[in-house]
């Protein structure tokens, strides 16, 4: 009988203790953020979609179209094309498209890049109305950012320019091949294929 009443009292007391907690929190200030009105600054390490870095010296991107990122990407969503323009030492990207809807933001592309040409953006509003909205042309985005920062805009090579460069390169290669007729081609496309 005593146990019966004791149990009731202990139980009742535990309920009161719980209610004391909630009423205490009732008077505390709120901790949430009213999103569209207030925004939180993203941490510097935040991984948005990867984008091309604007090199502070050359004021353009550093991509040499080596396709390392395209090969390591788990979802195979990066398309890079590049060509060696006459008079330049290295290849230069003519197309860098990122199909962001497949991206898992793993960060392997930014880590593997030999010229550290990629960084994460702090963009988190990635919703779109169409699937195509998530296809990011990084050279176009780079132009937009350059315009916003008041820097000279890097032109995207047109198809004719690319064709001309390709022809020039082919010609140069042919000349080189003739010069070293017996030499083998150095790199036979390292695999990591899909």
């Amino acid at each position: 009988m005593i146990n019966y009443f004791k149990e009731i009292l202990v139980g009742f007391w535990s309920l009161l203790a719980g209610m004391a907690v909630t009423i205490r929190y009732f008077t505390k200030p709120i901790v949430t953020v009213q999103y569209p009105r207030e925004k939180i600054k993203m941490s510097p390490a935040y991984r948005g979609y990867p984008r091309l870095i604007i090199d502070p010296e050359t004021q353009t991107h550093r991509c040499i179209a080596c396709e390392m990122c395209a090969r390591i990407c788990p979802s195979q969503l990066i398309t890079v094309e590049g060509i060696k323009f006459p008079g330049e030492k290295q290849k230069r990207a003519t197309k860098y498209v990122h199909e962001h809807y497949y991206c898992s933001l793993c960060g392997l592309c930014t880590e593997v890049c030999p010229t550290s040409a990629l960084e994460y953006s702090d963009e988190y509003r990635l919703a779109g109305y169409h699937r195509e909205d998530a296809v990011l042309d990084h050279l176009v985005i780079l132009q937009l950012r350059q315009t916003a920062a008041g820097l000279p805009v890097t032109a995207i090579p047109s198809a004719e320019e690319i064709a001309a460069a390709a022809a020039a390169e082919a010609a140069a290669k042919e000349a080189k091949a003739k010069a070293a007729a017996a030499a083998k081609k150095p790199q036979a496309g390292e695999e990591v294929k899909e």
Binding site: T22, Y25, F26, P29, I30, V31, T32
Partner: peptide
Amino acid sequence: KVAAHMQLRPGPM
């Protein structure tokens, strides 16, 4: 509102 403030949020605003 009661629920929201007990849960540290503002509720409908």
